[in-house]
Design a protein around this nucleic acid. Sequence first.
RNA 1: GGCGGCGUAGCUCAGGUGGUCAGAGCGUGGGCCUCAUAAUCCCAAGGUCGAUGGUUCGAGUCCAUCCGCCGCUACCA
Length: 553
Amino acid sequence: MPENILVAVAWPYANGPLHLGHLAGAYLPADIFARYHRMKGNQVLMVSGSDMHGTPITISAEKEQISPEEVASRNHRGFLESWQKMGISFDLFTSTHTENHTQVVHDMFLTLMNKGYLYKDTMPSAYCPNCTRSLPDRYIEGECPYCHSTNARGDQCDECGKTLNPNDLINLRCSICGTSPEIRESEHFYFKLSAFSDRLEAWAKEQSQWKPNVYSFTMRYIKEGLRDRAITRDLEWGIPVPVDGFENKRIYVWFEAVIGYLSASKEWAQQNNDSEAWKQFWQGDSRSYYFIGKDNIPFHTLIWPGMLMGYEGLNLPYRVPANEYLTLEGKQFSTSRNWAVWLPDYLERYDPDPLRYILSVNMPETGDTDFSWREFVRRNNSELVATYGNLVNRVLTFTYRNFDGHVPAIGELAPIDNALLNTANETLNNVSESLSNCRFKEGIKSAFALAQEANKYLDEKAPWKAIKENRDDAAHTLGVVLGAISCLRTVLYPFLPFSSEKLHSLLGSKGAITDIGWDFEFPLTDHALPKPEPLFTKLDDEEVISRETAKLG
RNA sequence: GGCGGCGUAGCUCAGGUGGUCAGAGCGUGGGCCUCAUAAUCCCAAGGUCGAUGGUUCGAGUCCAUCCGCCGCUACCA
């Protein structure tokens, strides 16, 4: 009985390109998870999209003297290209700037409003008369009342680290043009999150499948008391508020962006000519997994569930496997300081699978982990190439040369052969177990353990000796190892889809790799082998490290 | 300031509910082999699990304090 699995992935903000932190935090684990479940034969819907609204994009647009839509669309196209090249296999990657999304957001907004979960209130708002725009806190600058730094922002003083309100600042000024802003009262809609506090707490307490960090983070927020949140803003770039008198305001991006999971599902259904198809992933027997970074936890374990509770009739998140952060050479990624490895840049020079490998095996699942170019090269050369790539290459070239380009017959299986094949079957189960529970590092390590076993088996059987006196025994050994390699192709497919596809054809297998499902072929006797070629390329340590680290900072 | 996280072999990291949990990979030293991208495979050395107290028959694993890094602090997504 296939399961219905919604793979909901964080919506990247369309104000700049993607970096490795984004990949490791959400997109790669989500893709591994989705590919695994598709191989298992489950019904998977993996959706996300570009978060295209909000003030930062407006400001980028002004700097470039183009429209916010152009900025967002350009980045959106960049995202799509990166997904395609990295093999992030969305069923739909849309954006928040679609007619469909607006409709779904309005439906959510009006439904919550009609059920009494929204109310109006006023809040003070800084307005710059010169820019003719309301300013978010962080776009207000002034003198810090504590340390008297003149560059404090409305949300925080970078100099002394104090948290501030805009009113605290001395000599307010607009960070964009320097004009002194006015403080105006502005009416906004609020979401009554506090009304769901008890229900959210009761629900969260039942989520034993959540990671400890997700659970404790969520409970902490609940204990501190859930505050109602303003869900509209004084902006021009965004989703209109479907209420008279709010023509000059827009729905706050955080409220509308999470609705994207639902609107994207509906859009996907329409594209597939079955406008009801989204329901199988949102109602009844279906599980939803939200892959996000740890900074997004409260939005997915509290606010979005609260919205869904208010809306009624849709499934709440089943798991929120939030990852921690990836650091780069020991320091946090920083766009402004150019401390980042940008995905489009990486893809210009390297293949996707080595990156998918290192980010899988060193994924920040339970704590921050570090990416360094030295580690990247090392893991590529002495793990990916040496353990797995070399295994495949040595077996394929040996078979190809000695058996006329065909997988030979294997004859009877001895205990040592069955031991390896049993390990292969166990690996299928172990990786399955790991991935079902979103334990990605554990999964890829199990897979690599099989590659090591296969190398050991080869060494013990030494077909390069046997070929000289007992050709059948050599044939037998190669046939068995090829079975294990066929298994590696499957268990590594979620992690390393490009090399698994390549291996699939190098093994002379017919059809698509996904046709085989979560299983492997054995024996492969009579498969016609194409001329073997290496799965991966070895990298030059010093060259890569010096070239790449020179680009940082 | 408040909240939270981290600190385990040279390096990168694992270590559900305390009792083979002192581990893996890589690196290093030694050895076998030669099919393979000088890769594989075998063996070995290496850590008082940040510090100090405490709870316990027993603690990287719980509590307190301290030291050293780091992140967050909700209208920035």
